[in-house]
Protein backbone atom coordinates (compact mmCIF):
# COMPACT_ATOMS: atom_id res chain seq x y z
CA UNK A 1 0.00 0.00 0.00
CA UNK A 2 2.76 2.48 0.99
CA UNK A 3 4.08 4.26 -2.07
CA UNK A 4 1.21 3.10 -4.27
CA UNK A 5 -0.81 5.56 -6.28
CA UNK A 6 -4.25 5.57 -7.80
CA UNK A 7 -5.02 7.57 -10.92
CA UNK A 8 -8.34 9.38 -11.03
CA UNK A 9 -9.60 10.20 -14.52
CA UNK A 10 -12.00 13.03 -13.79
CA UNK A 11 -14.40 14.45 -16.35
CA UNK A 12 -14.19 18.23 -16.24
CA UNK A 13 -16.71 20.60 -17.72
CA UNK A 14 -17.65 24.22 -17.11
CA UNK A 15 -20.71 25.05 -19.24
CA UNK A 16 -19.88 28.77 -19.11
CA UNK A 17 -16.37 28.26 -20.55
CA UNK A 18 -16.01 24.88 -22.24
CA UNK A 19 -17.48 23.69 -25.50
CA UNK A 20 -17.22 20.04 -24.53
CA UNK A 21 -16.14 17.96 -21.52
CA UNK A 22 -12.54 16.81 -21.17
CA UNK A 23 -10.90 14.15 -19.00
CA UNK A 24 -8.00 15.03 -16.72
CA UNK A 25 -5.88 12.46 -14.87
CA UNK A 26 -4.58 12.98 -11.31
CA UNK A 27 -2.25 10.63 -9.41
CA UNK A 28 -3.17 10.34 -5.73
CA UNK A 29 -1.10 8.53 -3.03
CA UNK A 30 -3.14 5.54 -1.91
CA UNK A 31 -3.95 4.95 1.76
CA UNK A 32 -5.67 2.03 3.42
CA UNK A 33 -9.44 2.52 3.53
CA UNK A 34 -9.26 5.47 1.15
CA UNK A 35 -12.56 6.37 -0.47
CA UNK A 36 -13.06 8.05 -3.82
CA UNK A 37 -14.18 11.15 -1.94
CA UNK A 38 -10.93 11.14 0.07
CA UNK A 39 -9.01 11.00 -3.22
CA UNK A 40 -11.09 13.83 -4.71
CA UNK A 41 -10.49 15.98 -1.62
CA UNK A 42 -6.76 15.30 -2.02
CA UNK A 43 -6.94 16.42 -5.66
CA UNK A 44 -8.86 19.56 -4.71
CA UNK A 45 -6.58 20.51 -1.80
CA UNK A 46 -3.19 19.60 -3.33
CA UNK A 47 -3.41 19.33 -7.12
CA UNK A 48 -6.21 21.48 -8.51
CA UNK A 49 -8.18 23.87 -6.32
CA UNK A 50 -10.55 24.53 -9.19
CA UNK A 51 -12.10 21.05 -9.10
CA UNK A 52 -15.81 21.33 -8.30
CA UNK A 53 -17.10 18.52 -6.09
CA UNK A 54 -20.00 18.55 -3.62
CA UNK A 55 -19.88 16.67 -0.32
CA UNK A 56 -20.91 17.08 3.29
CA UNK A 57 -21.36 14.28 5.85
CA UNK A 58 -18.78 11.78 4.47
CA UNK A 59 -20.80 8.87 5.88
CA UNK A 60 -23.51 8.12 3.28
CA UNK A 61 -26.18 10.03 5.15
CA UNK A 62 -26.57 13.35 3.35
CA UNK A 63 -26.54 12.15 -0.27
CA UNK A 64 -24.43 15.07 -1.52
CA UNK A 65 -21.55 13.22 -3.19
CA UNK A 66 -23.43 11.19 -5.79
CA UNK A 67 -21.42 10.69 -8.98
CA UNK A 68 -20.58 8.09 -11.58
CA UNK A 69 -17.57 6.02 -10.56
CA UNK A 70 -16.24 3.45 -13.00
CA UNK A 71 -19.43 3.69 -15.03
CA UNK A 72 -21.86 3.18 -12.14
CA UNK A 73 -23.72 5.74 -10.00
CA UNK A 74 -22.39 5.63 -6.43
CA UNK A 75 -21.78 7.79 -3.38
CA UNK A 76 -18.09 8.78 -3.44
CA UNK A 77 -17.90 8.76 0.36
CA UNK A 78 -18.82 5.09 0.72
CA UNK A 79 -16.92 3.76 -2.29
CA UNK A 80 -13.53 2.49 -1.23
CA UNK A 81 -10.91 2.52 -3.96
CA UNK A 82 -9.89 -1.00 -2.96
CA UNK A 83 -13.42 -2.20 -3.87
CA UNK A 84 -12.99 -1.06 -7.49
CA UNK A 85 -11.22 -2.94 -10.29
CA UNK A 86 -7.48 -2.24 -10.35
CA UNK A 87 -6.30 0.53 -12.63
CA UNK A 88 -7.40 4.09 -13.22
CA UNK A 89 -10.73 5.15 -11.68
CA UNK A 90 -13.11 7.01 -14.00
CA UNK A 91 -15.03 9.71 -12.14
CA UNK A 92 -17.88 11.54 -13.89
CA UNK A 93 -20.91 13.61 -12.91
CA UNK A 94 -24.25 11.83 -12.60
CA UNK A 95 -26.22 11.26 -15.80
CA UNK A 96 -29.67 12.77 -16.45
CA UNK A 97 -28.90 16.04 -14.62
CA UNK A 98 -27.64 19.38 -15.96
CA UNK A 99 -23.99 19.93 -15.03
CA UNK A 100 -23.18 22.97 -12.90
CA UNK A 101 -19.44 22.35 -13.09
CA UNK A 102 -17.18 19.28 -13.12
CA UNK A 103 -18.76 16.72 -10.75
CA UNK A 104 -21.51 19.00 -9.43
CA UNK A 105 -24.95 18.60 -11.00
CA UNK A 106 -28.07 20.73 -10.69
CA UNK A 107 -30.64 18.95 -8.49
CA UNK A 108 -33.27 21.70 -8.61
CA UNK A 109 -35.66 19.84 -10.93
CA UNK A 110 -35.09 16.63 -8.95
CA UNK A 111 -36.19 18.31 -5.72
CA UNK A 112 -39.13 19.98 -7.49
CA UNK A 113 -40.34 16.52 -8.54
CA UNK A 114 -39.94 15.27 -4.99
CA UNK A 115 -42.10 18.20 -3.84
CA UNK A 116 -44.64 17.45 -6.59
CA UNK A 117 -45.05 13.95 -5.13
CA UNK A 118 -46.56 15.69 -2.06
CA UNK A 119 -44.14 14.26 0.52
CA UNK A 120 -46.28 14.92 3.57
CA UNK A 121 -49.46 13.58 5.14
CA UNK A 122 -52.67 14.92 3.61
CA UNK A 123 -55.65 14.99 5.98
CA UNK A 124 -59.12 15.91 4.73
CA UNK A 125 -61.03 14.97 7.86
CA UNK A 126 -59.07 17.01 10.38
CA UNK A 127 -56.59 19.32 8.57
CA UNK A 128 -56.30 21.48 11.68
CA UNK A 129 -54.82 18.48 13.53
CA UNK A 130 -51.57 18.87 11.60
CA UNK A 131 -51.24 22.53 12.58
CA UNK A 132 -52.24 21.99 16.22
CA UNK A 133 -51.76 18.31 17.05
CA UNK A 134 -53.70 16.93 20.02
CA UNK A 135 -52.48 13.37 19.86
CA UNK A 136 -50.98 10.67 17.65
CA UNK A 137 -52.36 8.88 14.62
CA UNK A 138 -53.01 5.23 15.38
CA UNK A 139 -50.94 2.84 13.29
CA UNK A 140 -50.08 -0.84 13.77
CA UNK A 141 -46.43 -1.97 13.52
CA UNK A 142 -47.29 -4.07 10.47
CA UNK A 143 -48.69 -1.02 8.71
CA UNK A 144 -45.45 0.85 9.35
CA UNK A 145 -43.44 -2.05 7.87
CA UNK A 146 -45.41 -1.77 4.61
CA UNK A 147 -43.79 1.55 3.72
CA UNK A 148 -40.97 2.27 6.18
CA UNK A 149 -38.19 1.23 3.78
CA UNK A 150 -39.20 4.00 1.39
CA UNK A 151 -38.72 6.59 4.14
CA UNK A 152 -34.98 5.85 4.17
CA UNK A 153 -34.46 7.87 0.96
CA UNK A 154 -31.65 10.45 1.29
CA UNK A 155 -32.45 12.13 -2.07
CA UNK A 156 -28.96 11.60 -3.47
CA UNK A 157 -30.28 11.28 -7.04
CA UNK A 158 -28.38 8.08 -7.90
CA UNK A 159 -31.63 6.30 -8.82
CA UNK A 160 -32.81 9.00 -11.21
CA UNK A 161 -29.36 9.28 -12.78
CA UNK A 162 -29.35 5.54 -13.54
CA UNK A 163 -32.91 5.30 -14.85
CA UNK A 164 -33.08 4.61 -18.62
CA UNK A 165 -36.60 6.04 -18.79
CA UNK A 166 -35.48 9.29 -17.15
CA UNK A 167 -32.72 9.52 -19.76
CA UNK A 168 -35.24 9.45 -22.60
CA UNK A 169 -38.32 11.14 -21.13
CA UNK A 170 -37.64 14.58 -19.65
CA UNK A 171 -41.13 14.69 -18.09
CA UNK A 172 -40.82 11.37 -16.24
CA UNK A 173 -40.84 12.08 -12.46
CA UNK A 174 -38.14 9.48 -11.82
CA UNK A 175 -37.84 6.62 -9.36
CA UNK A 176 -37.27 8.83 -6.32
CA UNK A 177 -40.47 10.85 -6.68
CA UNK A 178 -42.60 7.83 -7.65
CA UNK A 179 -41.39 5.69 -4.75
CA UNK A 180 -42.13 8.59 -2.39
CA UNK A 181 -45.62 8.85 -3.86
CA UNK A 182 -46.13 5.19 -2.97
CA UNK A 183 -44.66 5.75 0.50
CA UNK A 184 -47.57 8.11 1.30
CA UNK A 185 -50.22 6.11 -0.57
CA UNK A 186 -49.31 3.12 1.60
CA UNK A 187 -49.36 5.21 4.78
CA UNK A 188 -52.58 4.41 6.71
CA UNK A 189 -52.63 7.96 8.15
CA UNK A 190 -52.86 9.64 4.74
CA UNK A 191 -56.12 10.79 3.10
CA UNK A 192 -54.72 12.31 -0.10
CA UNK A 193 -55.16 9.25 -2.31
CA UNK A 194 -57.14 10.90 -5.13
CA UNK A 195 -54.76 13.84 -5.46
CA UNK A 196 -51.75 11.54 -5.44
CA UNK A 197 -53.26 9.17 -8.02
CA UNK A 198 -53.98 12.07 -10.39
CA UNK A 199 -50.29 12.95 -10.36
CA UNK A 200 -48.82 9.48 -10.87
CA UNK A 201 -51.49 7.93 -13.14
CA UNK A 202 -50.66 10.35 -15.94
CA UNK A 203 -49.15 10.26 -19.44
CA UNK A 204 -45.60 10.67 -18.20
CA UNK A 205 -46.25 9.04 -14.84
CA UNK A 206 -45.78 5.64 -13.28
CA UNK A 207 -46.59 3.64 -16.45
CA UNK A 208 -43.44 4.92 -18.16
CA UNK A 209 -41.41 2.69 -15.83
CA UNK A 210 -40.64 -0.66 -17.45
CA UNK A 211 -38.74 -2.11 -14.53
CA UNK A 212 -35.10 -1.86 -15.54
CA UNK A 213 -34.40 -2.05 -11.78
CA UNK A 214 -31.20 0.01 -12.01
CA UNK A 215 -32.59 2.47 -9.47
CA UNK A 216 -32.70 -0.27 -6.86
CA UNK A 217 -29.32 -1.68 -7.88
CA UNK A 218 -27.56 1.64 -7.20
CA UNK A 219 -29.58 2.85 -4.17
CA UNK A 220 -27.09 3.28 -1.30
CA UNK A 221 -29.75 2.99 1.46
CA UNK A 222 -31.73 -0.10 0.46
CA UNK A 223 -34.83 1.94 -0.39
CA UNK A 224 -35.54 -0.23 -3.46
CA UNK A 225 -37.43 2.37 -5.52
CA UNK A 226 -38.24 -0.21 -8.22
CA UNK A 227 -40.26 -2.20 -5.68
CA UNK A 228 -42.09 0.97 -4.62
CA UNK A 229 -42.94 1.80 -8.24
CA UNK A 230 -44.27 -1.71 -9.00
CA UNK A 231 -46.38 -1.58 -5.83
CA UNK A 232 -47.54 1.89 -6.90
CA UNK A 233 -48.74 0.42 -10.21
CA UNK A 234 -50.66 -2.24 -8.31
CA UNK A 235 -52.16 0.43 -6.07
CA UNK A 236 -53.27 2.51 -9.08
CA UNK A 237 -54.87 -0.50 -10.81
CA UNK A 238 -56.63 -1.54 -7.63
CA UNK A 239 -57.91 1.98 -6.94
CA UNK A 240 -59.16 2.39 -10.53
CA UNK A 241 -60.85 -1.03 -10.69
CA UNK A 242 -64.54 -1.40 -9.70
CA UNK A 243 -63.50 -4.64 -7.98
CA UNK A 244 -60.46 -3.12 -6.31
CA UNK A 245 -59.84 -1.81 -2.86
CA UNK A 246 -62.18 0.66 -1.25
CA UNK A 247 -61.08 4.20 -0.55
CA UNK A 248 -59.34 4.33 2.79
CA UNK A 249 -60.13 6.67 5.61
CA UNK A 250 -57.06 7.97 7.38
CA UNK A 251 -56.07 6.56 10.75
CA UNK A 252 -57.86 8.23 13.69
CA UNK A 253 -56.13 10.48 16.17
CA UNK A 254 -55.36 8.88 19.50
CA UNK A 255 -55.58 11.65 22.13
CA UNK A 256 -52.49 12.04 24.26
CA UNK A 257 -53.53 11.17 27.85
CA UNK A 258 -50.72 13.36 29.17
CA UNK A 259 -51.97 16.52 27.53
CA UNK A 260 -50.77 17.94 24.25
CA UNK A 261 -47.65 16.76 22.44
CA UNK A 262 -45.45 19.22 24.33
CA UNK A 263 -46.49 17.57 27.58
CA UNK A 264 -48.63 20.50 28.67
CA UNK A 265 -51.77 19.40 30.60
Amino acid sequence: MAGEEVVLKIRRFDPSLDERPRVEAFAVPLKEGMTVLDALIYVKSRLDHGLAVRFSCRMASCGSCGMKIDGRARLACETQISSLPRGAVAVEPMDNFPIVRDLVVDLERFFARHAAAMPGLVRERDPEEQESPTGEYLMAPGELESFVQFTYCIKCGLCSSSCPTASTDALFPGPQALSQAYRFLADPRDEGEERRLERVDAEHGVWRCHFAGTCSAVCPKGVDPALGIQLLKRHVMSARSPFGRKKRRGAPVFPNPNGDLLGQP
Partner: peptide, 20 residues
Protein backbone atom coordinates in the same frame (compact mmCIF):
# COMPACT_ATOMS: atom_id res chain seq x y z
CA UNK B 1 -46.89 -4.61 -12.19
CA UNK B 2 -49.42 -6.62 -10.20
CA UNK B 3 -46.80 -6.90 -7.47
CA UNK B 4 -47.27 -10.67 -7.17
CA UNK B 5 -43.65 -11.74 -7.71
CA UNK B 6 -42.06 -9.69 -4.95
CA UNK B 7 -41.55 -10.15 -1.24
CA UNK B 8 -43.30 -7.63 0.98
CA UNK B 9 -41.45 -4.39 1.78
CA UNK B 10 -39.57 -4.38 5.06
CA UNK B 11 -37.02 -2.33 6.97
CA UNK B 12 -33.71 -2.50 5.03
CA UNK B 13 -30.64 -3.91 6.76
CA UNK B 14 -27.02 -3.48 5.71
CA UNK B 15 -25.65 -4.79 3.38
CA UNK B 16 -28.67 -3.68 1.41
CA UNK B 17 -29.98 -6.08 -1.22
CA UNK B 18 -33.02 -4.88 -3.11
CA UNK B 19 -35.94 -7.29 -2.77
CA UNK B 20 -37.25 -6.37 -6.20
Amino acid sequence: EYGVIFDKPSRPDYPYRAKS
